[in-house]
């Protein structure tokens, strides 16, 4: 028996919005410590890694490890039927080929349930090595989304250059070129508005804008985003989900041909 309950459907809606741009389907691996999802996009350029810890749910029970392959488009149709303040419960029997989403209104007067067929997905699990990154940037998630959106007008690629002084985002193309520099915050009044840089060595890396823009669909989940970078290795973009886990995106860099 698997059962996981959240007191507000908003969190699950936001999590789904954060991953469905990159993935059409994905397997939710459930065990007694929580729910994990790891999947690459079709082109194998980016990877989504989602963790929802058991202790972050209002109720969580998972008697046997369970892998639930879901079509995220179908899941989105179902989640659209939930009000933000509904309680949402996911339920499945052991070895089941369906999962049930149950929504309960706050006054308990409306209860809906939606049963969705599960899929058998071929899963390629990637082992991600522990890495000490040369630069770690923490910045407002809204600011990062804005920068990705603005600069993707000027080129397909975004260059991120991180030094001790700050982080510079650049794009160039037919129109011309664009640069946005963010200095490290000197006095932190509000932590969620700060730009903080931990640098061992300066880094300059180039990434495809379209993936970065997909990652920013996670912005509603949290105030701050963390970018971890080292030369010539994938970028990690991490959004923490309050009290329950995180969604991390890995993006392979573009390199000189």
């Amino acid at each position: 028996m698997f059962e996981a309950r959240l007191s507000s459907a908003t969190t699950l809606k936001k999590v789904l919005d954060a991953i469905k741009d990159l993935l059409n389907e994905a397997t939710f691996d459930c065990n007694d410590s929580g729910i994990q999802l790891q999947a690459m996009d079709n082109s194998h350029v980016s990877l989504v890694s989602l963790t929802l810890r058991a202790d972050g749910f209002d109720k969580y029970r998972c008697d046997r490890n369970l892998s639930m392959g879901m079509n995220l488009g179908s899941m989105a149709k179902i989640m659209k039927c939930a009000n933000n303040d509904d309680t949402v419960t996911m339920k499945a029997q052991d070895n089941a080929d369906t999962v049930v989403f149950m929504f309960e209104s706050q006054n308990q007067e409306k209860v809906s349930d939606y049963e969705m067929k599960l899929m058998n997905l071929d899963q390629e699990h990637l082992g991600i090595p522990e890495t000490d990154y040369a630069c770690i940037v923490r910045m407002p998630a809204m600011e990062f989304a804005r920068i990705c959106r603005d600069l993707s007008q000027f080129g397909e690629s975004l260059v991120i250059c991180c030094t001790k002084e700050g982080v510079k985002f650049s794009a160039s193309g037919d129109v011309g070129s664009a640069n946005i520099k963010l200095a490290q915050t000197t006095s932190v009044d509000k932590e969620e508005e700060a730009v903080i840089i931990e640098m061992q060595e300066p880094v300059t890396l180039t990434f495809a804008c379209r993936y970065l823009n997909s990652f920013t669909k996670a912005t509603p989940l949290t105030n701050q985003v963390q970018l971890s970078m080292s030369m010539d290795v994938p970028l990690v973009v991490e959004y923490r989900i309050q009290d329950i886990g995180h969604v991390r995106y890995y993006l392979a860099p573009k390199i000189e041909d």
């Binding site: 990637l126 290795v233 390199i255």
Partner: peptide, 14 residues
């Protein structure tokens, strides 16, 4: 010219 790399060249399959 910048070439897009694949994640598969950085991470190993488990």
């Amino acid at each position: 010219y910048m070439k897009q790399t694949s994640l598969k060249s950085f991470f190993s399959f488990t």
